[in-house]
Design a protein around this nucleic acid. Structure first.
Length: 483
RNA sequence: CGGGGAGUGGCGCAGCCCGGUUAGCGCGCCGCGUUCGGGACGCGGAGGUCGGAGGUUCAAAUCCUCUCUCCCCGACCA
């Protein structure tokens, strides 16, 4: 047992059993707990506070592009859900149905939304008559239900929290522009606020959203097994949904046209990404910008007399930090300081301030970083300027560390053998040439379990041989196993 | 939904094969005291219809049937 391990004796080993580690961290850091309903979880206050901070940061970014928030019904009549064939085919196996209202059997079963295109598009059809009514740019924060078979806290639960944006446009170009814009919003949000480096790109035909023309995605690499996690998707729906749901309008030339739609979503599954990308053998490590508690103060004393002076110094510090950081003072007197250090590290708090008699005497506080474990004494009157700086440094360092992990575990692979080896060894992402044929894609999936995560926007240029069939290709894709 | 593993005080487990005193242990919890700068200690105490239902039996945590849930692997998915 090494030194790191001793700090977190109750936590399953990070290297040996990453999946178990994940489950343990979720519960012990008090992010979520099991619910008495299959596949569902209770998001606990600490986890929900994290989600609220994330929501706030994503919400303003979405609104800054001209989108407004609204709310649509939870239930979708069967006839509406089934109108778009590919769409319902894609979701049918995981839709839950309401068939009874009170004691009365419903004439038409109502689906609990697995996503809201089928209830939102019919509304858009009512609202649009002219090209002047377009675009419609609406987002909603809600939960959706998909009857999942293998639940995992945040990553895959029957009910999950997300935002789903739905827009309608008068041209395909405009819809395409919006689709890409929202992916960029996601990329910026995830990289800036969550310190998660991602690879933006396009989904292959077989991996795209049910009913979409094109799906764009941001893919992140998780720690542990170095699998991929789709962390946000943006779909160009073309005019399929416009036609099916009758979103018709007269253009400037007086001709009847169908609207072009987009939809885009980011769920609390990205909390799972935060846990798996940044976490370590001591537990959770939260990015300062969204951490519910950015700085925890642990007062230390022995005698009552010491307690008084320490507490008053702590009050002063807390006051001086009021406007610069989210601070929590851990005043519990039934836990020793050492116990608290471990607990707050487990909960991923970016900075810890230790203030004891020695510090009060020296007019300073011991400041400890969660990311580097670096410990330094900082004069009390400098805390208000140093703490925000340190939080920023931690945020940057966490991004850099995650970026290094992504880069170091991504390799250009030119032989199928090597690809198989890498997937089997959980070696990370492989960048390979792909001819575009679904048979080649399928073969890799069946034989190695890796899938095309995306066709990155960032293409190397030039051409090469398809990793499977050897045919000439000008497209490089990311192959990896995914959660 | 297929394969494997597991459900026993809040958590982690033992007991189960081979049915038989009052179902144990560690941690946690409550009280008192001593402690407190990297998971403190002593003494006293509380807490269980052994996941649920049904069955076999004089007797079930233990055997049988059904069922629910969780974890791992596979298929599906944000």
């Amino acid at each position: 047992m090494n030194a790191e391990r001793r700090f977190v004796e109750e936590l399953d080993d990070f290297e040996d059993d990453f999946d178990r580690w994940y489950v343990e961290v979720v519960r012990k850091a008090e992010l979520a707990d099991e619910a008495p309903i299959r596949g569902m979880r209770v998001v606990m206050p600490y986890g929900f506070a994290l989600w609220e901070n994330m929501q706030a940061q994503l919400d303003w970014r979405i609104k800054a592009t001209g989108v407004q928030n609204a709310y649509f019904p939870l239930l979708i009549p069967r006839s509406m859900l089934e109108r778009e064939a590919e769409h319902i085919e894609g979701f049918a196996p995981e839709v839950a149905w309401v068939t009874q209202g009170g004691s009365k059997e419903l004439e038409e079963p109502l689906a609990i939304r697995p996503t809201s295109e089928a209830i939102i598009c019919p509304m858009y059809a009512r609202w649009v008559q002219s090209y002047r009514d377009l675009p419609i740019l609406i987002n909603q924060w809600c939960s959706v239900l998909r009857w999942e078979n293998r639940p995992r806290a945040f990553l895959r639960t029957s009910e999950f929290l997300w935002q789903e944006g739905h827009t309608a446009h008068s041209s395909l170009d405009e819809a395409e522009e919006r689709t890409k814009l929202m992916l960029e919003v996601y990329r910026d949000f995830v990289e800036t606020e969550l310190a998660l480096p991602v690879i933006p790109g396009q989904k292959s035909e077989s991996e795209k959203f049910a009913g979409a023309l094109r799906t764009y995605t941001i893919e992140a690499m998780m720690g542990g097994k170095k699998w991929a996690l789709q962390s946000g998707t943006s779909h160009n729906l073309g005019d399929h949904f416009g036609k099916v749901f009758g979103i018709e309008f007269l253009n400037a030339a007086g001709q009847r046209e169908y609207a072009f739609n987009t939809s885009w979503g980011l769920s609390f599954r990205t909390i799972g990404a935060i846990i798996m990308v940044h976490g370590d053998e001591r537990g959770l490590k939260l990015p300062p910008r969204v951490a519910p508690i950015q700085t925890v103060i642990v007062p230390i004393w022995r005698k009552d007399a010491e307690r008084e002076t320490v507490e008053s110094a702590v009050d002063g510090v807390r006051e001086s930090l009021r406007d610069v950081a989210r601070v929590f003072v851990d005043r519990r007197d039934d836990k020793t300081p050492g116990w608290k250090f471990n607990e707050w590290e487990m909960k991923g708090v970016p900075l810890r301030l230790e203030i004891g008699p020695r510090d009060v005497a020296g007019n300073q506080a011991m400041v400890v970083r969660r990311d580097t474990h670096e410990k330094q004494a900082i004069p009390l009157d400098e805390l208000a300027t140093r703490i925000p700086q340190l939080l920023e440094e931690i945020q940057d360092n966490m991004f850099e560390t995650a970026k290094r992990m992504l880069d170091e575990n991504t390799e250009r692979v030119s032989t199928y053998e090597r690809l198989k080896e890498r997937v089997a060894a959980n070696a990370g992402f492989s960048r390979v040439w792909w001819c575009g044929d679904e048979t080649c894609e399928e073969k890799v999936k069946t034989e190695t379990k890796a899938t095309i995560r995306c066709i990155p926007f960032d293409q190397p240029g030039g051409t090469g041989d398809c990793i499977v069939c050897g045919k000439h290709s000008d497209t490089e894709v990311i192959m990896a196993r995914a959660y």
